[in-house]
Simulated assay, not measured.
Amino acid sequence: MIEPEMEELTDLERLQAQILHRIAKLELSILPPSKNSPNNDLPTTTATEARLSAVLVDGGVNDFSFKRVPSDYYDWSYEARRDILGAASIHHLCKSIVLVNTQAASNITDCSDRENSKYYVVVVQYTARFSADAVKNFLYSLNNGKIPKKRFNLRLAPEEISHKLTGYEHNGVTCVGMKTDIPVILDEAIVKLHPDFFWLGGGEIDLKLGIRTSEFINFAKPFIVNCSGS
């Protein structure tokens, strides 16, 4: 009979092995730094990447990948970004944005009520036109009309607030391993993508995370909302 302490040790060892295996695979997929980069001695695996890998594995996510991109990545066309990541299409390139409800009641100051939160993280395609009104209408319906619609006014959170809540800088924001447990809204268009593997920020400006959509949904437990147009 296995003692409880031994069972716990075995589970920890198995989790550690999974993380180390994942990191080893990630190291092989890391892209070299841009030839214009002044620092050619960048580490292949950063603390952020290792931490997020552990968070994902611990959350039951198996199909994910990190890729490092050159420093001028955001000057590139969507087609070039697609190619360097190996994404299926430009529509598979997504971003996480932090929204603040500027008209929330004075007692709504945090994210403790995910149905009526002060802040939300929305994951949306770069190629889509985000609609704050669609999110407003969704939240109004989510609360069964008990909260006046005028109490929902979603706007992009100031960069310093986004950084404080998530721990990530602009262009590095991801909804994995955030400092604050902010409710996530996933644009419905991403769920409809084929193949179902999309890319988003990876916690650092030049680090991107690719993840299986179904596993992301199981992990992040997002509200799935039609909140964009082409």
Results as ranks from 00 to 15, higher is better:
residue 24 A to C: 07
residue 52 L to A: 06
residue 155 R to S: 07
residue 129 R to E: 09
residue 132 A to C: 15
residue 217 I to D: 02
residue 10 T to F: 14
residue 116 N to V: 09
residue 98 V to R: 03
residue 49 E to G: 07
residue 98 V to K: 02
residue 134 A to E: 12
residue 121 V to C: 14
residue 164 K to L: 08
residue 117 S to Y: 14
residue 38 P to F: 01
residue 212 R to L: 08
residue 109 T to G: 04
residue 218 N to S: 08
residue 1 M to C: 01
residue 162 S to P: 00
residue 124 V to D: 05
residue 66 F to P: 03
residue 139 L to P: 01
residue 166 T to R: 13
residue 82 R to D: 00
residue 79 E to F: 10
residue 173 V to K: 08
residue 168 Y to W: 00
residue 84 I to N: 07
residue 208 K to M: 07
residue 141 S to D: 14
residue 204 E to D: 14
residue 29 S to I: 04
residue 174 T to C: 10
residue 51 R to Y: 15
residue 224 I to D: 08
residue 180 T to E: 09
residue 199 W to Y: 07
residue 102 T to Y: 05
residue 200 L to Q: 02
residue 202 G to V: 03
residue 205 I to Q: 07
residue 180 T to D: 11
residue 129 R to W: 02
residue 77 S to K: 09
residue 101 N to Q: 06
residue 147 I to D: 00
residue 125 Q to N: 04
residue 157 A to F: 08
residue 140 Y to W: 09
residue 105 A to E: 13
residue 171 N to F: 08
residue 196 D to H: 09
residue 15 L to S: 06
residue 54 A to V: 04
residue 21 H to G: 15
residue 212 R to Y: 11
residue 52 L to D: 07
residue 212 R to P: 01
residue 160 E to P: 02
residue 193 L to E: 04
residue 65 S to D: 11
residue 199 W to N: 05
residue 143 N to P: 00
residue 134 A to I: 12
residue 114 R to I: 02
residue 191 V to I: 14
residue 226 N to H: 14
residue 141 S to G: 06
residue 91 H to C: 10
residue 114 R to W: 03
residue 83 D to I: 00
residue 86 G to C: 05
residue 189 A to G: 10
residue 49 E to C: 10
residue 103 Q to P: 04
residue 223 F to V: 08
residue 196 D to T: 14
residue 126 Y to Q: 10
residue 185 I to T: 04
residue 52 L to S: 04
residue 23 I to S: 01
residue 106 S to F: 09
residue 74 Y to K: 12
residue 189 A to P: 09
residue 202 G to D: 07
residue 189 A to Q: 10
residue 143 N to W: 10
residue 70 P to T: 11
residue 187 D to R: 02
residue 129 R to S: 13
residue 22 R to V: 14
residue 221 K to I: 02
residue 4 P to A: 13
residue 96 S to R: 00
residue 89 S to I: 01
residue 113 D to S: 04
residue 215 E to M: 09
residue 141 S to F: 05
residue 38 P to N: 00
residue 14 R to A: 15
residue 167 G to Q: 06
residue 148 P to A: 09
residue 59 G to H: 00
residue 10 T to Q: 05
residue 112 S to E: 13
residue 24 A to G: 11
residue 56 L to R: 14
residue 199 W to K: 02
residue 131 S to P: 03
residue 22 R to T: 11
residue 155 R to V: 12
residue 223 F to N: 01
residue 174 T to R: 02
residue 85 L to M: 12
residue 224 I to Y: 06
residue 99 L to P: 05
residue 121 V to L: 10
residue 67 K to M: 07
residue 159 E to Y: 06
residue 220 A to R: 00
residue 132 A to K: 15
residue 199 W to L: 12
residue 3 E to L: 15
residue 211 I to R: 06
residue 60 G to F: 06
residue 71 S to R: 03
residue 33 P to N: 02
residue 179 K to T: 09
residue 108 I to Y: 09
residue 224 I to F: 03
residue 179 K to V: 13
residue 139 L to W: 12
residue 180 T to F: 12
residue 98 V to L: 10
residue 62 N to F: 12
residue 55 V to N: 07
residue 97 I to R: 02
residue 167 G to F: 11
residue 15 L to T: 14
residue 176 V to W: 13
residue 206 D to S: 10
residue 93 L to Q: 05
residue 69 V to S: 02
residue 217 I to W: 10
residue 168 Y to P: 08
residue 74 Y to T: 08
